[in-house]
Amino acid sequence: MSARIFRPAKTAMQSGKAATRRWRLEFRADAARHPDPLMGWTSLADTQSQVKLEFDTREEAVAYAKKHGIDAKVFEPRERPMKIKAYADNFAYNRVV
């Protein structure tokens, strides 16, 4: 059973970063997806891939994985540089276009 530990990135549909502060542990699918013969949807026999656990810190997620014998790989988040801007700069006379 393998998993990955990461902090989710913000989606394009949101402007804030509130949903990106917690660390998430997601299990990887061990088997390939197969189409359901009745409905045609793709499905998995393994229900572990549906489990998503959230933790406040990276250390809590790693400790949980070690305690339960889960082979987890940690992905560090990439931080974007913050550009400090003022709304008034849009109307400045010497504005760089």
Rank of each mutant, 00 (worst) to 15 (best):
P37Y: 12
L38T: 10
S15D: 15
R22W: 07
A72K: 02
K66P: 06
K85V: 13
V97H: 11
K52T: 09
E79L: 11
R22I: 01
W23V: 04
D46G: 07
R58K: 15
K10I: 03
A12K: 09
N94M: 06
M82P: 03
K73H: 04
T57E: 00
K67R: 15
D71M: 00
R58G: 03
F27G: 07
K67D: 14
K52A: 14
A19C: 01
A32G: 07
G16P: 02
S2A: 09
N90D: 13
Y64K: 07
A63P: 01
T57V: 05
K83E: 03
K83Q: 14
M82H: 11
D46C: 09
P8R: 15
G40V: 10
I5Y: 02
F75W: 10
R21I: 01
S15Y: 09
D36N: 15
A72W: 02
V74R: 09
E26R: 15
V96G: 08
D89L: 05
E59G: 08
W41G: 01
G69R: 10
F27C: 11
E79H: 02
L53H: 11
R58V: 01
T57W: 04
L38I: 14
K85P: 00
A86Q: 09
A92F: 01
L25T: 05
A12W: 07
F55A: 06
K17L: 04
P35M: 04
I5Q: 04
E54L: 04
P77V: 07
P8A: 09
M39I: 09
K67S: 13
F55G: 07
A18M: 06
I84R: 12
E54M: 03
D71N: 12
V97T: 11
G16V: 00
K66D: 08
S49H: 09
A92N: 14
M13I: 00
M39Q: 12
A86N: 13
K85Q: 13
T57A: 08
V62G: 04
K10G: 13
A63C: 06
E60R: 08
T57F: 02
E76N: 12
A61W: 04
M1S: 10
I5V: 07
F6G: 01
D30K: 14
M13V: 00
E79S: 07
T20M: 01
E54A: 15
R80V: 00
A65P: 04
A86R: 15
A18R: 13
F6I: 06
A32M: 06
M39C: 12
E26Q: 13
T47G: 03
F55V: 10
K66E: 13
F75K: 14
